Amino acid sequence: MRMKSQYLFVVVVVAVIAVYFIARSLFGGGAHVAQAKPKAPAAGPPTVQAKLIPEAIRTYEVMVRGRTQATRTVVVRSETAGVVAQTPVLQGAYVKQGQVLCRLAVDARQAALDQAHAAQQSAVLAQQQNEELAKKGYRSPTQVLQGQANLDAAKAAVRTAEIALAQVNIKAPFNGVFDQRAAEVGAYLAPGQPCGTVIEIDPMLIVGDVPETEAAAVKVGAAATAKLVSGQTIAGHIRYVAHDADPQTRTYHLEVTAPNPRLDIRSGLSAELQIGAGSGPAHLVPTSALVLDSAGRQGVRYVQADGRVAFAAIKVVEETPQGLWVTGLSGPVQLITVGQSYVADGQKVQVAQAR
Rank of each mutant, 00 (worst) to 15 (best):
H243L: 07
A217P: 08
R266T: 04
V241Q: 05
L125R: 09
P247Q: 10
S267D: 09
D209L: 14
A223S: 14
Y252W: 11
Q99H: 10
E200T: 10
D202G: 02
I170G: 03
I238F: 06
Q248C: 12
V351N: 09
V343E: 03
G44N: 09
T287F: 11
P211S: 13
V84Y: 08
Y7R: 09
V317A: 08
I234E: 01
I53N: 07
I234K: 04
L133Q: 13
V177N: 09
Q248F: 15
Q49S: 02
R2L: 04
T47A: 03
E200S: 12
R72C: 02
D293E: 05
I17H: 14
G221C: 00
V198G: 05
A36R: 15
L254S: 00
G147S: 15
A123W: 10
Q110I: 03
A18Q: 05
G296E: 14
N169I: 01
T68H: 11
T337F: 01
A112R: 14
A226P: 06
G44I: 03
V48M: 07
A271V: 03
S270F: 06
G278T: 01
L151G: 12
P88M: 01
T249W: 10
V343C: 11
F174H: 04
Q115G: 03
F27G: 09
A215N: 13
T213H: 12
A56P: 14
R297K: 11
G276P: 01
A134W: 00
Q129D: 03
A166R: 01
T327Y: 00
H243C: 04
V10E: 07
C195A: 11
A164C: 11
G92D: 02
T327C: 06
A289F: 05
D114I: 02
R2G: 01
P332V: 11
L263C: 05
Q340A: 14
K96Y: 15
V14Y: 05
G296Q: 14
Q129E: 03
Q127L: 14
T320P: 07
Q347C: 02
E184N: 15
G186C: 13
H32N: 13
N130Y: 11
Q35A: 11
G147A: 15
C102V: 08
Y60T: 07
V158Q: 06
V349A: 08
A235T: 13
E55R: 10
V210Q: 02
S25W: 08
Q193V: 11
V177P: 12
I234G: 00
D107T: 02
T320S: 13
A123C: 10
I234D: 00
T73P: 04
H243R: 09
R77W: 05
A352S: 07
Q334L: 02
S122I: 06
L8P: 10
C195Q: 03
A40P: 15
D345C: 03
G328S: 10
A295E: 09
G236Y: 00
P46C: 09
A153S: 15
N150G: 10
M1D: 13
L254C: 03
R24H: 12
Q334C: 02
G28Y: 10
P286D: 08
E212G: 06
Q148H: 14
G98S: 12
K171C: 07
A116M: 08
I17R: 15
R301W: 08
D202A: 02
A216G: 14
A15P: 10
D209W: 15
G176R: 00
I201K: 00
I314C: 01
S270Q: 12
H32T: 13
A235K: 11
Q304N: 13
K4R: 12
G29K: 15
